[in-house]
């Protein structure tokens, strides 16, 4: 029976939905499951971790682990993987996961695959499916080792009702800090900000919103809907949006129920980050904009005119 270790995705003290999604998938394919959680002051998450579908919880809880550092983080995961005897080690989609997975794989002498959307097990043979080349193609990748470390793409697996776990905590000792890569500062997101990758609705702005006033206009709509607020690269490069709000090939991959692209042309690199969304709405004044090729609903018009109406109409329908 496969043994799957899932890395808990914790942000600002809260367990993110990817953890339950990955554990659900693991249980659905009949695997034995464990989770590893790394951080500071995370003891209180134990029951959440079990409820998400894990039967063993490896917990590395230490003040030295408060800020992300890839080296110590990888040591914790390797420690848990060895104790559990995991043959599959899954990270949810996150920047920390992308930084840590190749390290863990190398230390375990295992294969590593990022951005996977599916996994197929037959006997000891592991194969994964993943998009590549800015989503233009899919690859089937055969794993030649008996262990695989993978980063799972956002939205690939779904949390299923009725998945349960049991509380069985194994404490991990804190690893030595990485003295050669010392994190000095974290310029962090606002507390309580809705995370793009988790949000049920994501609204992104592009160059079409022009300036801060345009960003603020769309932000109001995002606030109304409690939506994650993202952007194209053009708005990040322009200094209007933070780097970790970028959606696309080199930014966040999102798969919400509803994605709104406001003033975004739909470059291939942007599409690579959002075409997994369930429903896409695009607002663009150019009827030929490529974003309309992937949008379920398209409004051709001036966003400065459309967005206020959109807000009003949505308010009406919600009340």
């Amino acid at each position: 029976m496969a043994k799957i270790l899932v890395i808990a995705d914790i942000k600002q003290g809260v367990l993110k939905s990817s953890t339950a999604e990955l554990l659900s998938k693991a249980k659905t394919i009949g695997a034995e499951t464990a989770v590893v959680a790394v951080g500071s002051n995370i003891e209180s998450l134990t029951s959440d971790l079990a409820n998400a579908g894990s039967d063993t919880q490896y917990i590395a809880d230490d003040p030295s682990l408060e800020l992300f550092s890839a080296g110590p983080y990888a040591s914790c995961v390797v420690d848990a993987a060895k104790q559990f005897g995991a043959n599959l080690i899954w990270f949810g989609f996150s920047e920390s996961g992308k930084a840590v997975a190749p390290r863990v794989a190398t230390q375990l002498d295992a294969a590593c695959a990022t951005e996977i959307t599916d996994v197929e097990l037959s006997g000891d043979q592991i194969e994964v499916i993943r998009p590549a080349i800015a989503n233009k193609v899919m690859q089937r990748v055969k794993v030649n080792t008996d262990q695989l470390v993978a980063v799972v793409r956002a939205g690939a697996f779904e949390a299923t009702e009725g998945i349960t776990g049991t509380e069985n905590v194994v404490k991990l000792s804190a690893p030595a800090p990485d003295l050669k890569a010392v994190i000095k500062e974290l310029i962090s997101d606002a507390i309580g900000e809705i995370d793009l990758v988790d949000a049920d609705v994501v609204i992104s702005v592009g160059r079409g919103v022009k300036d801060q006033a345009g960003v603020d206009l769309v932000k109001e709509l995002a606030n109304d809907l409690k939506a994650g607020f993202g952007s194209s690269r053009a708005m990040v490069d322009g200094g209007f949006m933070a780097h970790n709000k970028q959606v696309g090939q080199t930014g966040k991959i999102v798969a919400p129920s509803l994605y709104m692209a406001i003033g975004i042309s739909g470059a291939i690199q942007h599409l690579a980050g959002m075409t997994g969304s369930k429903v896409i709405l695009a607002v663009n004044k150019d009827t030929e904009a490529p974003i309309f090729n992937v949008a379920d609903y398209g409004i051709v018009g001036d966003l400065f005119e459309v967005v206020p109406i959109l807000r009003e109409e949505i308010k009406k329908i919600k009340s």
């Binding site: 294969a111 899919m138 055969k142 080792t145 090729n293 398209g298 051709v300």
Partner: peptide
Amino acid sequence: PKSEIVEFMVSKTRKAGQKFEGDAAEITA
């Protein structure tokens, strides 16, 4: 190699949906 690509496949493409042009208030509603 620890892993190898055994097959490339066509990726799922989305189809263009409904696109509305005209009076902003009307089409947005």
